[in-house]
Design a protein around this nucleic acid. Structure first.
Lengths: 237, 237
DNA sequence: CGCATGCATATAATCATACAATATGCTCAG
DNA sequence: CTGAGCATATTGTATGATTATATGCATGCG
């Protein structure tokens, strides 16, 4: 997973506390021990702890004030779309209904993105979509397919020329990828969704927004139907 | 604006550097002075500077490594949906086309949210929508209207039961609000969009997702048509 | 008795300094 | 020419001291 935190010490501390909060082990309103104590408990210096706290504070998970201490903030203040926060949820939630929420986001944005791409992608952006599609056609195994598939969706998103949408996509997609290999299926028919992709690709080429939207939606709905229940094993690092 | 940064010293530093990066004064790939120097330049201790750097790093704006220094990362790594990043853009961008992108996001997810709300809002959530609608009906001036209006949209989003969507809404809405008073119009007919809201409200009550979606879309499109060009004055703090 | 005002105190915020870890690139032997 | 290892610059971590800021209590005034 590691969206950002790993190598450094304060990274570990951030993650440790982040997971504790997001998982509910530390509940909103609850106060953390004071810096000195907490630093000792986690066997790090106050410096490292404070840098971690600062990050968590920026993500809206905690709030620190002199005299009163540091408390966990209510969920509505959390930056739910932050890559780390999302990753921590993936590492701690009961999964099922959270995946549903991620898929829901995807169902809303990807079709809209396809429509936008059809409306105003430029030559360079279209070529990237085309290349990705051709790579999918040419793929010889599930790995090649998966790579080209991801590239196709990313290329479509980029063609929207809206970096907010691109960011949302990458965040949601990354989170989903931690649960299962997207578009996965038995290796025998890993190209089953190629026709859907072709429809989307053609619609973008012909600049038919509505067609592109519908094709993308169909693709996702079909994909969801086949993915449901096929989650990956582990996850808890 | 101030999404998070203000009171504290490192908050100021974070904001200062954040704006410099987002505005393009510091470009991707460019290296920042070493900590000691930069700290002196900004007249703060290394501690304060580092806490700010840590936050910017968490937002994907910079990357620090021993020996090589700290560099500005490429835009594709930025957490574009972070409240602060968005705020910094609002404070520095050429505006016009960025607003367009924000509105675009809104046009995509608000109708979808209305549909979801119609499908599965619970009693308590519906009552909040109802109360907001009634407050809009009862409003006597633009201020009361604006408050109830915002509450209406927020209530609809909350009724989706998808906190990712709620978070997205609050982020986008906050950013947009920095440009103009949403749904603003001459005070004489500030209730012009009430019929649209009624349609949405009724559709949710009757659990008609498609009707709710279309009504919300109409509302936004109409609103956009009237808002275009009517931006607020200043902005550049 | 109630209310405002100021003071003591606990906690985070900031600072200064020292030392450790880590990449980078250069040197030098093979 | 190549690769191993060392020097070095920069961030990373640690520690201790000092300052700023809320909170709540005590105190005095109305």
């Amino acid at each position: 997973m590691r969206a950002a935190s790993a190598r450094n010490l304060h990274g570990h501390v951030t993650q440790e506390l982040g997971v504790r909060i997001v998982s509910g082990a530390l509940r909103p309103g609850e106060s953390l021990p004071r810096e000195e104590v907490l630093a000792e408990q986690m066997a790090v210096s106050r410096t490292a702890l404070r840098e971690a706290m600062r990050v968590l504070s920026a993500k809206g998970l905690i709030e620190a004030r002199p005299k009163v201490g540091t408390r966990v903030r209510e969920e509505r203040y959390w930056q739910q779309l932050d890559a780390d926060v999302l990753a921590w949820r993936c590492a701690s939630m009961p999964t099922a209904d959270f995946v549903q929420k991620l898929v829901e986001m995807r169902e809303i944005f990807e079709p809209a993105a396809a429509a936008l791409a059809a409306r105003r992608s430029n030559a360079e952006q279209f070529e990237r979509i085309e290349a990705a599609y051709q790579a999918m056609e040419a793929s010889r195994n599930t790995d090649e397919w998966a790579e080209a598939d991801l590239e196709f969706h990313e290329a479509v998103l980029i063609a929207t020329n809206n970096e907010l949408m691109i960011s949302l996509f990458s965040v949601v997609e990354t989170a989903l990828a931690s649960y299962f290999v997207l578009s996965a299926r038995k290796s025998s028919d890993f190209k089953y969704s190629l026709p859907y992709h072709r429809k989307v690709y053609e619609a973008i080429r012909k600049r038919q927004p509505d067609v592109a939207r519908r094709a993308m939606l169909q693709m996702i709905l079909d994909s969801r139907a086949h993915i449901t229940g096929k989650r990956r094993s582990g996850k808890q690092a």
